[in-house]
């Protein structure tokens, strides 16, 4: 069942070599937890993370890469959106600092569905004829066992060590509101452990109201929760606050160089406290 931790305690449970599932920018990104991770001393910094984006990422993946924590990334895209390309990601590709596992969104999502169902793989349409197939030797083409002349791609189940996201609300029983973002449930179902930061923790059970219960991730799937107001900043959080476009643009500018990136991180926790 879910335990309640501080932000630093929660971040400290992410260790070397773990596979880490993170959501897209619209679903609620645990940016404060990410900054807390990167702020750790070099000897305590988790390295060789295998990052799996559900199904794309932005500033969060770029920061983990820039800090040298990532040995592989599985994603359909990394982009800062309106602020442009992800600079540490693009630089890492050129320098080969991590293994790139390019995907397409529904194939990644299908991997999580297989993971949550406990089956070894999931079939997915499309893909055949894309150069992604050569880039992903772990994806296979099989013959549809139920029809003739129908090749179809299968992707292996994804079972991350850790899923990490930010949500508006948890209750004191460990249930977490995820609204319409069903991919957060799939992440948590497939993951061995799920870490969640939330804007607030309520005394009333989120399952008490039948009309709202469908948008709640039950505590069964939640390992640890930390209360972190504005925990998605500078990204936005659905139903709560908008993206801080100036701050993301500032990051996009500074992160063009490793020195600028380090300077950004140096001030980021303090800027976060001001923004919160």
């Amino acid at each position: 069942m879910a335990t309640f931790l501080t932000l630093d305690e929660l971040a400290a449970t992410i260790g070397d070599g773990m596979s880490l599932a993170i959501p897209n920018d619209q679903a609620g990104v645990a940016m404060a937890a990410t900054l807390a991770l990167t702020a750790r001393a070099s000897k305590n910094l988790p390295k060789n993370l295998h990052v799996i984006c559900v199904p794309i990422s932005g500033m969060q993946a770029d920061i983990l890469i820039g800090r040298g924590m990532v040995s592989a990334i599985e994603t359909s895209a990394v982009t800062l959106g309106e602020a442009g390309g992800a600079p540490r990601f693009a630089d890492g590709i050129r320098q080969r600092t991590f293994r790139m596992m390019d995907a397409t969104c529904p194939a990644l999502l299908a991997g999580f569905v297989a993971g949550q169902k406990g089956v070894p793989f999931m079939a997915i349409r499309g893909l055949i004829g894309s150069d992604l197939m050569a880039a992903r030797p772990d994806w296979r083409i099989i013959d549809n066992p139920y029809a003739d002349d129908d090749p179809v791609v299968v992707v292996p189940a994804i079972r991350p060590d850790v899923a990490l996201f930010h949500a508006p609300e948890a209750d004191r029983f460990g249930n977490v509101r995820i609204g319409r973002h069903a991919e957060l449930a799939a992440m948590a179902h497939a993951a061995r452990r799920t870490l969640v930061t939330v804007e607030r923790i309520s005394d009333t059970s989120l399952l008490a109201n039948e009309n709202e219960a469908a948008g709640v991730l039950p505590a069964l799937y939640v390992s640890a929760i930390a209360e972190v107001p504005r925990g998605a900043w500078p990204l936005g959080l659905w139903g709560e606050y908008a993206l801080d476009g100036d701050e993301v643009a500032r990051y996009a500018q500074l992160a063009q160089t490793p020195e600028g990136f380090a300077a950004y991180l140096e001030g980021a926790m303090r800027r976060r406290e001001i923004a919160a």
């Binding site: 359909s76 080969r96 880039a135």
Partner: peptide
């Protein structure tokens, strides 16, 4: 590929849609 001279974000959902 994979160490592209210019790298763009990625394929998104294109290889399916």
């Amino acid at each position: 590929y994979p160490d592209n001279e210019v790298r763009w974000p990625g394929s998104f959902g294109s290889a399916f849609l």
